[in-house]
Lab assay of single mutants.
Amino acid sequence: MDVFMKGLSKAKEGVVAAAEKTKQGVAEAAGKTKEGVLYVGSKTKEGVVHGVATVAEKTKEQVTNVGGAVVTGVTAVAQKTVEGAGSIAAATGFVKKDQLGKNEEGAPQEGILEDMPVDPDNEAYEMPSEEGYQDYEPEA
């Protein structure tokens, strides 16, 4: 019985440690998101679009440190934060509304985080759909 109880105690310690790591990862992701939003706020009209992409990228980098179902929630929060940063930029006159959601080359930025393969159960990952990809044929 002692062996059984000791095993359960060790398992509990492992769960607590994993929860603490997840909590730490979420806190880091939130900190990076805040950094990115402050970065966007300090940019001029020309830099705002690039700044919004930076927020998304920093958040995406930190999301990889967070495991399990938390990833889905962090990704949703990050996307809403990026959308909010863009709205703030438009409201303050840093950028025109028609410039939001495009990178410096004018290509749409939507789907940055949505296409990231995420499995809350950590069982399997699927690649994003290939609808947006084109076949590449090298020139002879």
Rank of each mutant, 00 (worst) to 15 (best):
K12Q: 04
E131P: 09
A30G: 01
H50L: 14
P138Y: 09
I88L: 11
P120M: 08
V66Q: 01
P138L: 05
K10D: 01
G7L: 14
I112E: 06
T72C: 08
E57G: 03
E20L: 07
V74L: 15
E46C: 05
A11L: 13
L113P: 10
N122V: 11
E137D: 08
V82H: 03
V40T: 01
V118M: 11
D98L: 10
V71T: 03
A91M: 12
K102D: 13
Q109I: 09
E20S: 02
G93V: 09
V52P: 01
G67Q: 10
A107T: 09
T81S: 05
G41E: 01
F94V: 03
I112C: 06
K10Q: 03
E110I: 05
A78D: 02
G36P: 01
A140T: 12
V37Y: 13
E123T: 07
K96V: 14
K34R: 12
I112G: 09
G93C: 03
V26N: 00
G106W: 11
A11K: 00
G36T: 15
K58H: 11
Q79G: 04
E61A: 05
K32T: 02
V16D: 01
A17G: 03
G132V: 09
M127Y: 10
L113H: 08
T33C: 03
A78C: 07
M1K: 00
A91Y: 12
G36I: 15
E83V: 07
G31L: 11
G101K: 10
D121C: 07
M127A: 03
A53M: 09
G132D: 11
S9N: 15
Q62P: 02
F94I: 06
Y136P: 09
K6F: 04
T22G: 04
G47Y: 13
A107V: 10
E110S: 07
G67C: 12
A18K: 02
L100S: 13
V118Y: 10
D98T: 15
T33M: 15
E61G: 06
E61Y: 02
N65E: 08
A78H: 04
M116D: 09
L113G: 13
T72V: 05
L113Y: 09
V49R: 08
Q109R: 10
Q134W: 10
E13F: 05
D98K: 10
A76Q: 09
G25I: 13
A124R: 13
V52Q: 01
E61P: 02
V118G: 13
A27E: 02
E137S: 11
A90V: 13
S87D: 10
E57V: 06
